[in-house]
Each structure stands twice: as structure tokens, then as C-alpha cells.
Amino acid sequence: MIVRELELDLDAFEGPFDLLLTLVLREELELAEVDIAEIVLAFCSRLEERGRLDLDACGEFLVLVAALLELKARGLFPEEALELSELEPEEAAEELARRLADYRRMKEAAAWLSERLEGASERFFRLGPAPLAPRVERQLAPQDPERLGAALRLLATEPPSLSLGHMALRFPPVSQFLERFRAVLGRRSRFDFESEVAGLSRVEAAVAFLAMLELRKAGEVSLEQASSFAPIRVLGTRAATAKEGVESQWIARSA
């Protein structure tokens, strides 16, 4: 008898035992949903069908089921496992007996309820949502029409217009600074970025910085900075003049 091929028909799973193990190990099946007692019953009835005791199969089955039970117990009581592991064997046995007793009591209570329900199968009664309670009328104090008018007048006045100035950040075009820097480099071979943007607004300075990076990317300038936050020195390269020549040619042609 091959334990792995044991066919199972449980609430949570239907198929061979080895598939169940695979799914549990891959965490695709919640072990908490699996009734392990059912698996044991399925195994026992299979043993009975075969009529002879297969000790190898029993041993293999016991090992697998014990592992499943341990996994399930750890899953169900993640924190308690710690507490229980600190218990003396004597206390642990008592705790186990207490829980088993609780469960047995609840099984009997469930049986009592089922019996009760069977006995109540002839009881028909009206079921429905709770009827609505009468609406409580709210009593208002006597009101003065003048005060109402004053309140409305307050609402009718136009509110002061809000300033949206902070929403309209004006960005000067990058090209404006490209031209400006090129003109400077036409006159001088180098300049300090800080002194060039002195007096400009924060946004304008940022755009000027972008223009400087553009020039660097195009190879028109090279940049020097002694250390972080030190003044940035912009040096015109020869390529700058060459590029300017190409660009003016292109402009002349497209015109």
C-alpha cells in the first residue's frame, strides 16, 4: 500500500495524499482548514479494506500525519506554542486534557442544539427586520425672522477673492539663458555662474542652472568647482565656437 496515493475526500481538499502535502508545503492550502482526523479515518478504512496490516505503510503514515499535526498546531497557536513549550510535561498534559474536555463539552452542546433544532422543526414564526420606531419630532425654540435674515445676509456677501499667485510660477525659457551665456562667452573665455545669476529670482536661477547644464551637455562649456557649494566656474571650449558656426549655418539654410 502506498501512503502517498491514499485518496482523500475532505471538506477542504479532494485528491491524493501527496498532493495535499505538496499544497500544504507550498502554502497554497491552509492547513487550519484541513480536518486531520478525517485523513486518519480514510487511512484506517483503507487498511481495513486490505485486510492485512501493512506495517511499513503505517509507519510512513504516522510520520507524515505527526508532521502535519505539528505544523497545524504551530499554525493555529503561533504565540501559544511558545508559552506551551515553557510548560512542564505535567502542566502541558493538564492543559491538553483541559482543552480536550472543553472540546468534548462543546461537541455535546452542539449535539444538544441539533436535537433541539430537530424538535423545533414544527415551529413557524414571523421573521422580519425590527419595525421602525416612531419618529421623534424635534422641537425648535421660537425663531426671530430678523435673525434669519441677518444670517442669510452674512451668507449672501461675496467672499474675498483668493490669491492664486503662488500657483502661477513663471518659468523663463531655457533658451533665454543659453543665448545670454553664449553672448558672455563670446566676450570672455570664462565666467562665474554665481555672479552671472546674482539678483535673479530662485526660479530664474534654477532655469539658468539648467541652461548651463545644457551647454555642458552640448560640449560648449566645461565646468569647474573646487568643492561642494564652492563657486561654479564656466569655461568656454573651442567646440563652442565650432558648434556655433554649424548652428548658424543650419539656421541660414533653413531660412
Partner: peptide, 20 residues
């Protein structure tokens, strides 16, 4: 109106004895 818990089976001592 439910049966008293003590009247339901599941004596912890009895189960303990069976476990032992």
C-alpha cells in the same frame, strides 16, 4: 435555558486518565 456546562461531558480528569 442551555444545559449547564457541568452537566455536559468532558471531565478534564477523566480525559487526563484516558490519555495516561
Amino acid at each position: 435555558a442551555l444545559p449547564r456546562l457541568d452537566d455536559l461531558g468532558g471531565e478534564a480528569d477523566e480525559i487526563r486518565e484516558r490519555l495516561e
